[in-house]
Simulated assay, not measured.
Amino acid sequence: MASLEEALAVADAIGYPVLIKAVGGGGGRGLKRADDRAALIQLFELASAEALAAFGDGRVYVECFVTQGRHVEVQILGDGQSVIHLGDRDCSVQRRYQKLIEEAPAPGLPEAMRAELHAAAVRFARFIGYRSAGTIEFLVDVPRNRFYFLEMNARIQVEHPVTELITGVDLVEAQLAIAQGHALPWAQSDIRFEGHAIECRINAEDTDRDFAPSPGRVKTVRFPDHPALRVDTHMQSGATIPPFYDSMIAKVIARGATRDEARQTLIQALTQVSIDGVKTNIGLHLNVLDTPAFARGGIDTGFWGAIWPIRPLPGKKVNHETESRTVY
C-alpha cells in the first residue's frame, strides 16, 4: 500500500499491534511496529521513506504483529499428482531466528488447529503441483488461536530426522525416488505417527563470548550409542573445524514413547557427548531442556529472550557449559 489511509483501514480491520514492512526488500529496512492507531500515523511515513531510500520503492505492507508466536512446520511429500503430509514439527526454540531445538509432533497444539495446518500444507503443495520433499512453515498466533503462512522450504530440512523417527519414512530416500520419476508409494492413510522425537543442533561456538564461532582442531569426539538415539555428524577425532562455514557439527536426536521420555533420553545423551578441542553449545541445550517451560511444552519464540543470559539462582554460580537452571 502506498497511502496512510489504506494502512489505517487494514490495521483497523486486523487489529493492533501491526508491523509495517517494506515491499521492496528486507533486512529490517523500513520495519516498524505500531501498537495503536496514533503510532501507525506517526510511523507510516517514516517507514515508507526508509523503504524508498533503501529499495527505491516506498510501498509497505501492514500485517498483524504476533506477540506470542510458535514456529510450526508441516512436512510434505509430493510427486506432481498426489501430496501427503508427514505431520508437524515445532521449531520455536530459536536464537536470532536460527533454530536450536526441533521436535515432532508440535506439543500442546489444539487438535483442530493441527488438522487445519496439515490440510493447509497439503492444499498449498497440491495447488503448485509440487514434486519433492518439502516443508510448509507457519507462525501460530497463540492468543488469537490462528496461524499464518511463513514460507515453503523446497528441500530437506536440518530437522527432518525427528519426522523420520516418528513416521519410519526415510525422507531422503523418498525425495530421490520422486526425483527419479517414481510415484509416491503411500496414501495419507498409510502414514502412522508413533512416539515423540527431539533434536538438538550441536554448534562449535562459545556461548560465554556471545556465541562466537569456535574453530580449531577437534582432539577427540565421542557420542553415546543408544537404541533410542540418532546422531548425524561428519565429525571425528582429529578433524579441523574451519572458520568459514556454518558452525553446526552434529545433530543429536532422541526418540521416546512420550515427549518426556524423549526429553530425558536426550538430556542423558548430551551429558555423555565428549568433544575436546573446541567450545560447543551442549551446555546450553542441557539448560534449555531442563527448564520447566520447555518440559511443559508449547513454548513460543519469545522463550529464548526469557532464559538468556542465564540468571543464576541466589547464592549459586552458574556455569554456562553444564549448569541447569529454573527460570521462565
Rank of each mutant, 00 (worst) to 15 (best):
A2K: 15
K21C: 07
K21Y: 04
V23S: 09
G26T: 08
R29V: 09
R33E: 08
A34F: 05
D35E: 15
F44A: 02
E50R: 01
G58R: 08
V60M: 00
C64D: 01
V66L: 15
G87V: 09
R89V: 07
D90Q: 09
I101Y: 03
E103L: 06
E103V: 05
E111V: 07
A112S: 10
R114E: 03
A115Y: 06
L117S: 05
R123E: 15
F127M: 14
I128Y: 10
R131G: 03
S132Q: 13
G134R: 05
I136C: 11
E137Q: 11
Y148D: 07
L150G: 08
R155I: 12
V162G: 03
I166H: 03
V169E: 06
L171S: 10
A179P: 12
G181D: 11
A187D: 15
I191M: 10
F193A: 06
A204V: 09
D208H: 09
D208T: 14
P213T: 13
V221H: 00
F223R: 02
D225R: 14
A228G: 13
R230N: 03
V231A: 01
D232L: 03
H234L: 07
T240D: 04
F244I: 12
S247W: 09
I249L: 00
K251V: 03
I253D: 08
I253Y: 05
D260A: 12
D260C: 04
D276M: 10
T280L: 04
L284H: 07
L286T: 02
N287D: 14
D290P: 08
T291P: 11
T291F: 08
F294P: 12
F294N: 08
R296M: 11
D300T: 11
W304P: 09
H320E: 14
H320G: 13
